[in-house]
């Protein structure tokens, strides 16, 4: 029982991690938050679900979802970041919140405000690993989430573009002087964040067998809590914090009460903010030495 719950929690956490990674990538490259990322995930999930309903294989739906995510992130970048002055640090947040509203409203307009069910995948599969069982959908979720997370690590660590992204997060002026096309690197960062969000959206939909136009807001909220817990801009911190929150939520629902699920995460985040405001793995989170 406990083994199964822990596994379910890790599964949930793995999808949280993808959205949080998307947030952190943008924070790293631009020191900005893209508040439309949750809605990006939601739209991608809806697109994926619609394609699956028409009978297309999951692989196609998944590719379409991540493509949608990447495309939407670029659109949000152009609308809310590219031409918004960096003298107003919160302007991009407001603008991306606005984009989030638009995305949600458009989905409601096109598909209605009802929940949409997400068809199952690998329905026949049911692995018994002793401590816990893994359904086909769960297998797909865990494998894809892990692949994407590891892939991101390798990309950031081993490739020229990955190095450029890390360079832009460290010191954009310096990197620009070295001839790195900063604008294109930022665009790439947004695309990647959208791809991660798109994947997260569809995988979460798969986990719950449904997707609603209002899920975008929930994903943003969860991702923000993950970020506070793991430390703003910290990739590893984000992954670990996501797993912690996923497991915590699942265990709370299983052993305490479903109504406490969100509250307990709020409490955890509050404690971390009081005791260690830079997050569990944050560098210094812009904590100024002040009175």
């Amino acid at each position: 029982m406990l083994g199964q719950q822990l596994f379910n929690g890790v599964l949930l956490g793995a999808t949280f991690a993808l959205v949080a990674l998307g947030f952190n990538l943008v924070v790293g490259a631009m020191d900005r938050l893209n508040f439309a990322l949750g809605e990006t995930a939601m739209v991608s999930a809806v697109v994926g679900a619609v394609l699956m309903e028409t009978g297309l294989p999951f692989a196609v739906a998944f590719l379409a979802a991540i493509a949608t995510g990447g495309l939407l992130a670029v659109i949000v970048y152009v609308a809310s970041f590219r031409y918004v002055s960096d003298r107003f640090p919160t302007a991009s947040i407001l603008s991306s919140l606005g984009m989030g509203l638009v995305l949600t409203a458009v989905v409601v307009k096109v598909f209605g405000s009802d929940q949409r069910s997400v068809p199952d995948v690998l329905a026949g599969v049911d692995l018994d690993l002793g401590l816990f069982r893994v359904s086909g959908a769960q297998l797909v979720i865990i494998v894809l989430a892990a692949l994407m997370t590891v892939g991101l690590y390798v990309f950031l660590d081993r490739t020229v573009w990955g190095t450029a992204i890390r360079g832009v997060s460290d010191d954009p002026t310096m990197v620009a002087l070295l001839g790195v096309p900063v604008q294109r690197v930022i665009l790439l960062t947004f695309t990647l964040s959208g791809v991660l969000a798109g994947a997260a959206g569809l995988l979460t939909g798969l986990a719950y067998h449904s997707v609603s136009p209002f899920d975008g807001f929930t994903s943003t909220l969860t991702a923000l809590m993950v970020i506070v817990l793991g430390g703003l801009g910290s990739v590893t911190g984000g992954v670990i914090a996501a797993l912690v929150i996923g497991v915590l939520q699942t265990l709370t629902v299983a052993y305490l009460s479903a109504t406490l699920r969100d509250l307990i995460v709020f409490v955890l985040v509050g404690i971390v903010l009081l005791v260690r405001p830079q997050g569990l793995f944050g560098r210094n989170a812009g904590v100024l030495e002040r009175v």
């Binding site: 924070v27 919160t90 909220l221 703003l232 405001p277 812009g286």
Partner: peptide, 27 residues
């Protein structure tokens, strides 16, 4: 809690706080 930190944290914390309050009243 939030103003000791950067503006991004202020945004995140106030956003989360909004949801927390809604949740608390709902329960």
């Amino acid at each position: 809690m939030a103003l000791r930190l950067s503006l991004l944290y202020l945004a995140i914390i106030t956003f989360i706080f909004g949801q927390l309050v809604e949740l608390l009243f709902a329960q």
